[in-house]
Design a protein around this nucleic acid. Structure first.
Lengths: 207, 207
DNA sequence: TTCTTCGGATGACATTTGTCACTTTCTTTT
DNA sequence: AAAAGAAAGTGACAAATGTCATCCGAAGAA
């Protein structure tokens, strides 16, 4: 498997090369330092996978990627970056990049390359967590971190379905007063004012 | 790396096992045939990665995944499926699955598992192609079709931001009573009961 | 000029909601 | 057995909410 590495940080590029070449299936055929390098080196070597940084002088990895993909729609480009900017993720996805992983977990780059080689796409942990947000503005919320117990979660769900306290009570076989007490507790824990804000919270942060 | 395979098609499950065990780093510790198997076997073996089909009798892989992830948020679940249904992809992403790949390219499953093991997420080619569509497909609600005028829209927006009638009134330089009247009108038009349902409506249909 | 419409406002009313203090009952802990 | 917690409930209260009939003034339409 022939890889082209493009990164303006020589140190990063070199350590990547070292790591990747320690595996026997991967061969680094060339290295570049910016977007225009990426384009010329890609043309010259036709690597199986192009492993490229996003932020670079002269031409960013995204621009270079767009140009390369226009000419070679099957090019496999795997982005490598230090931060996870929403804009970048969307743009990379739209152009048809094969993945977007964070430099920080570079021990995992070799298998990621293997997967890309097999036609799959790979995303780093931090990246994938953002996808639900991008898709429908929903992110996952960890109830346990806010001391929200099982029963409270049920109530939150029902509030988010638009039920009244009375309806929730009969749904859960509790008295209306109890539901009110629970809800009051929930609102305090989440620092919200009323059930509407809770529903909003649910739809913007949970699920 | 210990893997749990769950698929109701014995043949598929067996060939997966064979393929995966031909690599030296992967060890299949157990196999199940439906969602409830997945849950019990997961509890019993605590596999590094759970490789699971989506469509199964009794309990689907998605339901099982949700249950497992509720108890073990760090569980690594990789879905394996024959088709690429939008609904499923979104649901899998929302729950926090580590990937979603098509059975058809099962030669690539081993590296996908490696990548997942390294904390990354892997998606099949056909799957990732759908993501941009999903991201840009935020359904938009056509207010004009429901006779919702300009002012009413403003109020809806503010309700969806969690403001009280009083706050909305001062925001819009109206009296609280007027806001109440408007809101009452809106609720009737949209056939909703209260502001919470309106907020929910907003977050599920608008934007 | 009247008539009508429309945006906005009032006031009154019944409900719903959120808060709080306190009780009961059952289960754990000590 | 006594103490300490949960889980659930009660009653009371203030505030917010939703509904309705009605009113007012300005802008158009007849």
């Amino acid at each position: 498997m022939n890889i082209l590495i493009v990164d303006d940080d020589k140190l990063v590029a070199l350590s990547l090369k070292t790591i990747l070449e320690s595996t026997d299936r991967i061969n680094v055929i060339a290295m570049g330092a910016d977007g225009s390098d990426a384009i010329t080196l890609f043309e010259e070597h036709k690597p199986d996978v192009l492993l490229m940084d996003i932020r670079m002088d002269k031409m960013t990895g995204l621009e270079a990627g767009e140009i390369i993909l226009k000419k070679h729609p099957d090019a496999k480009i795997l982005y490598l970056t230090t931060f996870s900017d929403d804009e970048y993720i969307v743009r990379a996805l739209n152009m048809g990049a094969k993945g977007y992983i964070l430099k920080q977990d570079f021990e995992g780059i070799a298998p990621a390359l293997e997967a890309v080689m097999n036609g799959q796409s790979v995303f780093g942990e931090k990246i994938i967590e953002k996808l639900p947000v991008l898709i429908n503005n929903k992110s996952r919320f960890d109830f346990s971190e806010h001391d929200i117990n099982e029963k409270e979660q049920e109530i939150i769900t029902l509030v988010a379905e638009g039920l009244s306290n009375k309806e929730i009570a009969s749904e859960l076989f509790l008295s209306e007063g109890t539901v009110r007490n629970y809800l009051s507790e929930i609102l305090e824990k989440l620092e919200l004012r009323d059930r509407t804000q809770l529903a909003i919270f649910y739809y913007t942060n949970v699920k």
